[in-house]
Amino acid sequence: MELLKEKCVGPINELEIGSGVYAVKVGGQTCMPFLFQEGRMPHAPVTAVEILDCEPVDWPEDLVKSLGSRAKDPVVWAKDVLSETHANMLCVRLQSAHPDWVNRSSDDAVSVLKKIALAVDVPLIVIGCGDDEKDNDLMPKVSQALKGYNALLGVASQNNYKTITATCLADGHSLIAESPIDVNIAKQLNILVSDMGFDPRRIVMHPTTASLGYGMEYTYSIMERSRQAAFMGDKMLAMPFILFIGAETWRTKESKDGGVLGGVNWEIATAVSMLQAGAEILVMRHFAAAKSVSKFVELLMKRGR
């Protein structure tokens, strides 16, 4: 029987993050995830491991325990991520700058970030502290400090995108555009950002991560719908996806109460589901989960060779 194939009009944007031999490329595919018989999937999804720029005081005990003493020093933590998990990227969340946390000054946060950046070779994802006002002061300094790194910075939201877009544009970084599990807002934000002169091919979408058992299927369906539209030629939805798997899954009751394997498995299960939904960048927290997911991606990609 002949296989009826839908024709892909527009591939997903191909984006390079980082520089040199450690640079990663994501996107570029013309088919739904891992359906190699239907199109091209030139790049494997990548894993990043997320670290904080200060000690993680409110993380679940099992996760903190797995980090041991390295959690006290972000530079050590960053180096260990790479030597122990072989992640493709490092994600640094500048939690310390949050006014309700350490409330570190932007300059101090950036100086810690610089030390981390000097200690690693892989491409960087840098996320602000989550307080809009502080991030509007912090992220331009981050952007300038990392000029030339071709990093991925976040996050731009519908209500706060101008500062970070302008600074990424000036310093040549890519940008994470975040929408609240809403494909209409995701598309609108991509338009708003590109209206500022920012190349839409440098946008990575965060559709908002939801964990297994906590609405993951909503994220899944938004991603699927968005992908289908992109393949039909909607350039304002043709961006790669990033998902913050670790940050979301370790908030769940199951991860906190399930013992260390409970959390790790919850993180893996959410990540592999998001791979099937079309995720290009998976940001993990637990080293063991990150390693498993990388291995799983490798297995899936083998089928396409």
Binding site: N184, K187, Q188, I191, S194, R225, A229, D234, K235, M236
Partner: peptide
Amino acid sequence: KNIYCDSFLEAYRKR
């Protein structure tokens, strides 16, 4: 046939 967003006319023209 296309996904809605507030700037849907502009979005179509950016195809």
